[in-house]
Design a protein around this nucleic acid. Structure first.
Lengths: 348, 348
DNA sequence: TTGTAGGCGTTATCAT
DNA sequence: ATGATAACGCCTACAA
């Protein structure tokens, strides 16, 4: 037969107990390190080995009220930044013996709400979530969820949730300062959908930073945080004659930046000579493009890892007050913003 | 308190039964559509709604022996082709109400074996796996696993496992024929680690195809199926003077191709004019590079979807004989293999 | 149609 | 130190 056809049904504590000549209580105690004499312990372990016994997850979950599972939810796993984050969550969970359940939702609020609601089926001990949109109704649902939730992202102060944050507005400022420092004077901000929190924060960061440095700027909003969105946004700018002055694009994430690079190059702009481009996120692909993409790392993997740690901490001690961990953005300079002189001479 | 602190413990069938004035058996029957009179059914549903009752996953799993969870294991989730495949698995599972458990292993055989062994804790109803290496000991373990396994990939005929296959050797031939058709005459095959099944199959495909078309060829083996691997492979070729003749690279996957493009360009080759490059996999990023990457789609997402379907089918009917589903590779022509004339005139 | 009772595999309480 | 027993939440004979 193909597989999954266990000829012998899986052994339970009962068979182990019988074989070891003890009671099931003793078996359980030995397996959980709660005492037992030398000899019985040895006999039990022998029986376990001989039978190939492993505790059943369902039985244990039912009794303990713990599944050893953590759910992870994001809007778009096709964006490598979230794959990265997921890797971080997994790494943070590794020592705990917990498994990772991936719940990719759409960004429709109702999908998110139904995901949160489904948690009270008790299939996971907690949730790590990083949604693009966070209306009050969602935050309220997360607060009231039947299991602890860690939010990767910013939220209003009154929301009592553990969270891992980064200052993406400051990240935008880092990128803008870099563009200005490399001689750019007219920056177009290519943002993602205005309904999303990241877009809102980055827009605020851009507005403040441009005001501070006092350079010319323009803003366009893409339909989604994707390369397609970036291409279309550039096309729109172009058709409206808004690209002629601009010598730099600050994109709200790497995918948008990649789309812009592609579209701009297709219409004759050379990067970085004619047009500097920066992204945000530092996805693993960023260094692989030509030119490689200057970007701002928001520590996606690390945020995932920290989120897992916060969650484990809360599971261990539910009485804890809400905690927030912060990650500082970091500018990663690559080729897409190099000045012409730098390209030729290594500096002017 | 932060969250996960249910003030009222979650309702069980008992509270529903009490509220509806019926027995727990009736509640269960109504919820599972196994009869009940009009009026009682209505009363039960009202109680369910009023209490916000949802069946507990652990209790149900323990009783039914079904977890409604499927595990998905791959070597490297950082490769978008596997993210893609995962999306397919998830899509294939969607209607079944099953959740997706992601078990990212290393490619160490022992890791894979311990993953398979862990399945008999009963935390998943089945496994979809696409390992790069498949030694007999692993295949034997998969056959003997405590839950059904679907392998995404090729395996010896005697292995009694459901599988979703694609003919990657034929895929290599498609790419090579295309390179030859566009005028290339000296192709270097950049392969992944020889210990992996994909590398073996693609090497065989390349050997056969080059023999058939009778052109000059060379082969180099990268340390891993990554962009870094591709860069290093090109560097090695270059240092050994093996790049001078070659006018095309056929890379065993897209990441290798991207690495080669990057390294080759850094050393003065123009793509596609001086050097044509093809990949395999058609990752979502392939069209975004400049030049966009010609590649061979192996239908990763579709394979994932089909794997999920095979698994669901077997869960529904364990007596089925092993089944194999095949996906044909498809050449995706983009800019990285365009001929000089095509670039200028659109054809010669 | 409906209710009673048992058991899925585990851990934990309470005796001994 | 160990064993008998109950209980977690659910489903399903079986009986009524």
């Amino acid at each position: 037969m193909p597989s999954g056809a266990a000829l012998t049904p899986r052994p339970t504590v009962h068979q182990v107990a019988e074989r070891a000549g003890v009671s099931i209580a003793t078996v359980s105690r030995v397996l959980n390190g709660k005492g037992g004499s030398r000899t019985t312990e040895e006999r039990v372990r022998d029986a376990v080995r001989a039978l190939g016994y492993r505790p059943d997850a369902a039985g244990r979950a039912l009794k303990l009220g713990r599944t050893l599972q953590v759910a992870f939810a994001v809007d778009d796993l096709a964006n490598p930044v979230y794959t990265d984050m997921m890797g971080g969550v997994e790494a943070g969970l590794a020592d705990s013996g917990s498994r990772l359940l991936v719940a990719s939702t759409g960004h429709a609020v109702e999908d998110l709400l139904s995901l949160v609601a489904s948690l009270d089926r008790g299939y996971a001990d907690g949730l790590v979530i990083s949604p693009l949109v966070r209306p009050p109704v969602l935050l309220a649902a997360l607060e009231a969820a039947s299991v602890p939730v860690v939010l990767v992202g910013n939220m209003p102060d009154h929301v009592r949730l553990d969270s891992v944050r980064t200052d993406s507005a400051a990240g935008v400022a880092l990128a803008l300062d870099h563009l200005v420092a490399t001689g750019r004077r007219h920056v177009v901000f290519v943002n993602g959908p205005g309904s999303t929190v990241p877009a809102q924060m980055r827009a605020a960061g851009f507005a403040q930073a441009t005001r501070r440095v006092g350079i010319a700027s323009d803003t366009v909003t893409a339909d989604s945080f994707t390369a397609d969105g970036g291409e279309q946004a550039w096309a729109r700018l172009l058709s409206e004659g808004r690209t002629t002055q601009c010598d730099a694009v600050l994109a709200a994430n790497d995918l948008l930046a990649i789309g812009v690079m592609r579209a701009a190059r297709a219409t004759g702009r050379r990067i970085p000579d004619d047009l500097a481009v920066t992204g945000i996120d530092d996805i693993p692909f960023a260094p692989l493009f030509s030119p490689s993409l200057t970007t701002v790392s928001l520590g996606a993997r690390e945020r995932g890892r920290l989120a897992a740690e916060l969650l484990l901490g809360r599971l261990a001690d539910p009485g804890l007050p809400p905690r927030t961990v912060r990650i500082a953005p970091e500018l990663i300079v690559r080729e897409s913003t190099q000045r012409h002189e730098e390209l030729l001479t290594g500096g002017s």
